[in-house]
Amino acid sequence: MFKKINIFIIIILLITLTGCNLNKTTLVGSLNMNEELVNSARIIQDTGESNILVDSTYYSIDKAVIGTTSGKKISSKDLQPGSLINLKTTGVIMTSFPGQGEATRVILYDDKRSQEISEAVRYILEHQPNGKIISPSLQKITDDKLIIHFFEWTINGKKYEATLNLKNKDLKVIEIKNEFAEKLKEQQEKALKDKKDFMYTGYITKVLPNGLRINRVDFTFDKSITFKNQKGETLKLENFQVGDFVTAYHSHTSTETFPFKGTLYQLEQLMNNTPSTDWIKSLTESGQFIEPVIMDFWQEKDGTKTVKIIDIKKTKKFLYIVNYNHKTGKQTVKEIPNK
Rank of each mutant, 00 (worst) to 15 (best):
F221P: 02
F221H: 11
F221C: 10
F221Y: 15
D222M: 05
D222R: 08
D222V: 05
D222S: 12
D222W: 05
D222A: 13
D222E: 11
D222K: 07
D222Q: 09
K223R: 10
K223M: 05
S224H: 15
S224A: 13
I225R: 09
I225E: 07
F227P: 00
K228C: 03
K228P: 00
K228T: 01
N229W: 05
N229K: 07
N229E: 10
Q230T: 15
Q230S: 14
K231V: 04
K231I: 04
K231F: 09
G232C: 04
G232S: 04
G232D: 02
G232Y: 02
E233N: 12
T234K: 15
T234V: 15
T234N: 15
T234A: 15
L235W: 06
K236V: 05
K236Y: 10
L237I: 14
L237M: 15
E238Y: 12
N239C: 03
N239G: 04
N239A: 09
N239K: 08
N239I: 00
N239F: 02
F240A: 04
F240P: 00
F240C: 02
F240N: 01
Q241E: 13
Q241T: 08
Q241V: 05
Q241I: 04
Q241M: 09
V242M: 06
V242A: 05
V242T: 09
G243R: 01
G243N: 01
G243M: 01
D244F: 06
D244I: 06
F245W: 12
F245C: 04
F245E: 04
F245G: 01
F245S: 04
F245N: 03
F245M: 05
V246E: 02
V246N: 01
V246P: 00
V246D: 03
T247E: 08
T247C: 03
A248E: 07
A248S: 13
A248M: 10
Y249V: 03
Y249M: 09
Y249Q: 05
Y249G: 02
H250S: 09
H250K: 07
S251D: 12
S251N: 12
S251M: 08
S251F: 07
S251H: 08
H252L: 14
H252P: 05
H252W: 15
H252K: 15
H252G: 15
H252N: 15
T253Y: 13
T253Q: 12
T253E: 10
S254R: 07
S254W: 09
S254V: 06
S254K: 10
T255H: 14
T255D: 11
E256L: 15
E256H: 14
E256Q: 15
T257A: 12
T257H: 12
T257W: 06
T257I: 11
T257V: 14
F258K: 14
F258N: 13
F258Y: 14
F258H: 13
F258Q: 13
P259G: 08
P259M: 09
P259N: 11
F260I: 06
F260A: 11
F260H: 13
K261W: 06
K261C: 00
K261Q: 11
K261G: 02
K261H: 09
G262W: 07
G262P: 03
G262C: 10
G262V: 08
T263Y: 12
T263E: 13
T263R: 11
L264M: 08
L264I: 07
L264G: 00
L264R: 02
Y265I: 03
Y265H: 10
Y265A: 03
Q266Y: 10
Q266E: 13
Q266D: 12
L267N: 00
L267A: 01
L267G: 00
L267V: 01
L267I: 02
L267C: 02
L267K: 00
